[in-house]
Simulated scan of single mutants.
Amino acid sequence: MKALTFHGPRDIRYSEVPDPQLIDERAAVVRVTRASICGSDLHIYHGEGFSDDLGFCVGHEAVGVITEVGAAVDRRSVGDRVLIPASVGCTRCQACDEGRTSQCTSRSGATEKCYGLSTALQGSQAELVAVPDADRNTVIIPEGISDDAAVVMTDATATAWYRARRARIAPGESVAVIGLGPIGQTAVQHARLMGAAEVFGIDPVPERRRMAAVQGARVVDAEDPVAQVREWTGGQGAHAAIEAVGADATIEMAQRLVRRTGRVSVVGVNQNKRYSFHMERAQVKELEFAIGLCSVQFELPTLLELTRAGRLDPEVVITHRLPLSEGPAAYTCLDTKSWGPSLVDSSSFAVRLLPSSQAETE
């Protein structure tokens, strides 16, 4: 089959790799119909990955149709249309039984809890993907929800909802969203759905700010976002901030953006083991600081219902539809935030990759 594979910093290739096989009797194989690139994939692209492995398939956001199931799979069948949550759990521990797959006690380390980080669990930017513990790690896509909406829910929408939920947004409050990629864009939707009176969108890319404005954000177009938000909030700052970048500077900004007794919810991936947390400021301001990894399976029932009912629109973040063969170019363009001449649109941040066989028909 064809897949996107990692061969070193800024070296993603469209490669021929062996078809995946059933991992064990609890596994399934899914033919991918949609895959997308997450901002976290850029960490791998930059060489800031979670292992030293090379040649593995990348990607952890995909939907498709089950083509094969193991003998011990009880709740899935060949032909089922499913989304594949980015978080990977087991079917045996108590945490996974509650849907909290990020806390799985049977799987150790990031490379076993997410696709496409190493050879331990091959990624889903491919024509086929092997799914372990398929009863837990595939979710039936309800009628009326498109593949495009479903692929965004495999990670971005669920992660944004998790962070908004942990920010404890209350009706009438103000919320700052830092980073307006797919997670930040959907976080704007979620904050408004939870009753935020005003959502401030912060991002250096003009097109991202424009898209957030369409979804109801008041975008910050200023050299000093903290000063601008304080001005808009009568000198107080936002009630809550959702950080969707993961850089030291943006995590710091989130803490400065919120008012006293404010709440900071960090979703961006930060691998800095020596991050310097400003403890005195947090204590004096009585800040609440939440950080963690999303258990997609736990969030999905709510999101599927909200999407089915038309309250959420996950697929609005998709700006490009490309064949899998253009995956390497998509990585480069996402990294540089500029599209090459062969790609007409210039909004530069969300991509839906189509397996080669399907791209020929769309």
Rank of each mutant, 00 (worst) to 15 (best):
A247Y: 06
L334M: 13
L303F: 05
V229F: 04
V245L: 10
F277D: 05
A217P: 00
I251D: 03
A213G: 02
V317Y: 12
G327R: 04
A244P: 03
E223W: 02
I318L: 15
A213K: 11
D203H: 00
G268M: 04
E252A: 11
L324D: 05
A222S: 13
R311V: 00
L306H: 03
G327M: 02
P314W: 03
I318T: 09
A241F: 02
M211Y: 10
V317W: 05
D313R: 14
L287D: 06
P323G: 11
S295H: 10
H190R: 04
I202G: 08
F298W: 12
M194D: 10
G310D: 02
L193R: 05
E299A: 15
L287Y: 06
A329S: 14
G234V: 00
R260Y: 08
L334Q: 09
E280Q: 12
T302G: 11
K273N: 14
F200R: 07
E288Q: 12
A309Y: 04
H278M: 09
R321K: 07
I251K: 10
R263P: 00
S325W: 09
V264K: 10
D248W: 05
T261F: 15
G310I: 03
R209I: 01
L322Y: 06
M279S: 13
T302W: 09
G262Y: 02
T302S: 15
S325K: 12
R230Y: 03
G262H: 06
T332W: 13
V229S: 07
T250F: 00
A330T: 02
Q228H: 15
A227S: 13
T233M: 06
A191K: 00
L324H: 03
E286A: 14
L257D: 08
C333K: 04
I251H: 12
V220D: 01
H320G: 06
P301M: 09
G246K: 10
Q215V: 01
V226A: 13
P301G: 12
E305F: 08
L293I: 12
A309Q: 14
E252G: 09
P206L: 08
W232M: 13
Q283D: 12
L303I: 05
R260L: 14
G327V: 00
A247W: 06
H320T: 10
D203G: 00
R274S: 15
V284L: 13
M211R: 11
L306V: 00
R263H: 06
P225K: 01
E326L: 15
R208H: 04
V214C: 07
G310N: 01
G237M: 08
Q215T: 01
K273V: 09
K337E: 14
A191I: 05
E299F: 09
A244I: 07
K273Q: 14
A197D: 14
D335E: 15
V214E: 13
S265G: 14
E299G: 07
A240Q: 13
D203L: 00
H190C: 13
A282Y: 06
V219W: 02
R192W: 01
T250C: 03
D313M: 05
G262F: 07
R208Q: 04
R192P: 01
A196E: 08
E288W: 09
R208C: 02
R321S: 11
W232R: 01
L334G: 15
R256Q: 12
R230S: 03
V296K: 04
R308C: 08
V245D: 02
